[in-house]
Nucleic acid binder design. Structure first.
Lengths: 258, 258
DNA sequence: TGCTCCTCTCCCGTCCAGCGGAAAGCTGGG
DNA sequence: CCCAGCTTTCCGCTGGACGGGAGAGGAGCA
């Protein structure tokens, strides 16, 4: 009878941490049984581990019994140097763009075959919140993603072209169409998405480049989302390009010292 | 010979998590031995736990061998609902203030006897970075802190007055002086710090209030930091008050639905 | 160059704390 | 009222955590 036969192999610690993997931006509040199921942990074990995680402050218990991420992880997350240099350098430029245009501006980097949004200044007009800081989207699904893809190594491009899952009803799913778009982006130095018009916004994105010995190196993409009733997208290109060049210049300078 | 005699009592999990406690905004990169010392963990044990934490992604190893907070914790931290509602409601107001004044604007809440900065928009002129989002400062040491203190329950005020440690050379350390300042803040509805002039900036802070049955309830403080060469602080009061009222109103409205 | 000091890594015997099935609380809906 | 689903407590078994020791790898100094 009674339990016993300890864990199936993984270490205690990674088992506890695995619990945290159940949490996600699309599932920020979870009940005990949901967590147990999502993390593949026996209910009782999950219960105990949750107790410890809560005790430490990694999680907090809501009045309704569900768990959510606690202060401690917020504190620690804030000091994570994820693209720290880029974010610090870029922040003033994003704010400047926001001040002059009043629109939503965001900055993303490539992480594998995803675009990772690392900074964002929200505009007043409510646009869909898909580019939340920390969120990841497939490279082929957004303007900044395509810009990053246009500058990515060939093997990455091929991997993306090989698996074009639709994200919105308007996502390109034809590899030939996307390849043509990428060529166009490389030629014009900016991407312009009309696909997302249906979401109530149009967007524009440009590459951020750092000058290096051996040619420029794209490290990020700068995007702006404009409400649909303003169609003066093209007039924004110079401002965006200037900001992108400014970020690249400052980044190169700050790296010289290091 | 050989080790053995397992842990002194605490659970495995909390021991591993305790390792993370060694990290701090003032010490974001640590070596193995620093971590072992800071967390009071035997060197060998710390080494193993660090391996597990790194394997999961809570920490990453830098080329020089030091550890720092990794992507995973960043991701999780971003979905922590720490003052989520307040931050979402306040963000547009902070941006508006920044757009019109170009100065650094920040928002803080009270957490015990500390002011916790939860949102910030940095101005172009570089002011000291003490109000980084996530950082905590004693209530008596800053403008927003004093505003929060002025609205805090009596027991909190007494606790603070009882232990006035100096933070900068200009921090008030005399309880009587601070008590008079607090009375002044309650009367005028805003705080104005001249103490921090030496740091190269002057600041202004107002309470953010939510209307409730049973009188207004201060929940946060809104502050602005102005470079010293602009002395038109008083002209900012109306704009700040309007923003603070706006935040309070929106917050009350969004809570009605809930 | 040889020495010392410091930090990191691997090894391994002991022993205890994690494990999780079972069953008892606790809600809330029908 | 009864039942279904979720949460919490209980507890004996066992396998993995523990950490001292030794040695490798470097940095600094004479």
């Amino acid at each position: 009878m009674a339990g016993g036969s300890a864990s199936p192999g993984r270490s205690v610690t990674s088992r506890a941490l695995g619990i945290l993997d159940a949490f996600d931006s699309s599932a920020p509040r979870l009940s005990l049984s949901e967590i147990a199921e999502r993390s593949g942990t026996p209910l009782t074990t999950a219960h105990r581990l949750l107790g410890e995680l809560t005790g430490w402050g990694a999680l907090v218990r809501r009045p309704d019994g569900r768990y959510e991420i606690g202060r401690k992880l917020w504190d620690l997350g804030l000091i994570a140097p994820v693209q720290l240099e880029l974010r610090q350098v870029a922040a003033p430029f994003l704010l400047d763009l926001h001040t002059t245009t009043r629109d939503t501006v965001h900055l993303a980097v490539r992480e594998g075959v995803s675009a990772l949004y690392v900074e964002r200044v929200s505009g007043r007009e409510s646009v869909p919140v898909v580019s939340q800081v920390g969120s990841r989207l497939p490279l082929h699904a957004t303007g900044v993603g395509k810009v990053l893809l246009a500058a990515a190594p060939d093997d990455v491009v091929e991997r993306v072209l090989g698996a074009l899952r639709p994200v919105t009803p308007h996502t390109v799913t034809d590899p030939a169409v996307l390849a043509r778009e990428l060529a166009e982006i490389r030629r014009r130095r900016y991407a312009r998405t009309s696909q997302e018009m249906s979401l109530g916004a149009a967007s524009l994105a440009v590459p951020v480049q750092v000058e290096r010995a051996g040619g420029p190196l794209a490290v990020a993409a700068l995007g702006i989302v404009v409400p649909p009733h303003r169609r003066d997208l093209s007039r924004l290109v110079p401002a965006l390009e200037m900001a992108a060049r400014g970020i690249g210049r400052e980044l190169a300078r700050s790296r010289e010292f290091h």
